[in-house]
Design a protein around this nucleic acid. Structure first.
Lengths: 201, 201
DNA sequence: ATCCGATTAAAACAAATGTTTAAACCGAAT
DNA sequence: ATTCGGTTTAAACATTTGTTTTAATCGGAT
């Protein structure tokens, strides 16, 4: 493990991550990864065994990076309202820098149903997180708390996933999209809190 | 064009649609399509020219089927509130029968950026639809109307797209998921209307 | 019955692709 | 300088995969 070792393996992994997130596992070739990373073809298998294993390593890291923040944010000491704001703001910032990531992640999670996700200890997130206990207390009777967590995720993540469609239907450009997402950092927490305290008709 | 002609071509198309929506273009082979449809390998190319053309035909029909309803529903004579309810209810029912479709559609739309979507006349939807005019009138000042359309889509579609993740994080099963989505048919319109009439702090 | 075009089948083709091999290379330790 | 482990390279391998070819088959019109 010299310096070049780390550097080469890392170069391959980074390049592969970019290509996989752009086009998915099936539409990326090992030759493409190698040449795009500027390394010899054989090195992909030399360092990672196979295309599949390389993919799994990347997938693991992507999911982990995505979840690590979530777990911390859902458990910190801020008030519920503050946690909500921080969570939304952080994730929208994160996704703005990696807009293709959620669609990639979800596409590939469907193919490898749960196999990877379960290795990452996501199962206990919901039961244990402080955020969810607080959410339950504020929840209108008759509506399951997961509905609101789902709403938060939906409002944050879907715009990035649905961007190809949104751009066609509403004819907004990249700059407008980013402005939209910026505005949503303040709007989404308000909307969620509004849902939790519905108008009493 | 005898009866068998239609039947065989249709059998291939239906099988391919199922496979493509499950695993995406790159992870499905022509041999798989043929054998899964119970027809000879050569017939895929005989009827559709190439794998790519077959895919495009299917993609076109899927998007069209998805948009056709939307266009009608966004323009009919019901009140705004009714349109909202009908739209949400219809789409959740549709997606419940084809839960893999949105993720497939969005994944492949990203790869073929806009090429297909623009052939389907989706561009004028936003400018012309009655629903959007009504939405603009009800929109709180300072927030772009598209935000609320985005919210509606997000709350309806994301649960299906994010199902692989949701199932792991919250440990809900298929039956629970469907119950959740059923409940959302009534909840989403309420939430959207709540957003349009924010509490005046 | 025969002919004809459309359809189906089996096999082959050519290119792409994941993987492996065997030798060359390189830097550091001896 | 030599040796040795890890690294890189070019080439080859074996399979997969999209596509084509060529012939057989089927059904209806003449």
């Amino acid at each position: 493990m010299t310096q070049k070792d780390v550097s080469t393996a890392e170069k391959i992994k980074e390049t592969a991550r970019k290509l996989f997130t752009e086009r998915g596992y099936g539409r990326v070739t090992t030759r493409e990864i190698a040449s795009s990373a500027g390394v010899n073809l054989a090195l992909v298998n030399y360092y990672f065994g196979s295309k599949e294993e390389l993919f799994n390593v990347i997938m693991m890291e992507v999911i982990q990076g995505f979840m690590a923040q979530m777990i911390v944010l859902l458990n910190d000491n801020h008030t519920f309202e503050e946690k909500l704001q921080i969570l939304v703001s952080n994730y929208i910032d994160l996704l703005t820098t990696q807009p293709d990531m959620p669609l990639f992640m979800l596409s590939e999670m469907r193919t490898n149903k749960g196999q990877l996700a379960q290795k990452l200890g996501m199962e206990n997130l919901y039961k244990e997180a402080r955020f969810f206990r607080e959410l339950k207390e504020r929840c209108p009777t008759g509506v399951h708390p997961v509905q609101f967590f789902l709403n938060m995720l939906s409002l944050m993540v879907f715009p990035f996933v649905g961007k190809p469609m949104i751009e066609v239907v509403t004819a907004i450009d990249q700059a407008q999209f980013n402005a939209f997402m910026h505005a949503r950092k303040e709007l989404i927490p308000q909307w969620i809190l509004g849902m939790l305290n519905p108008p009493n008709n």
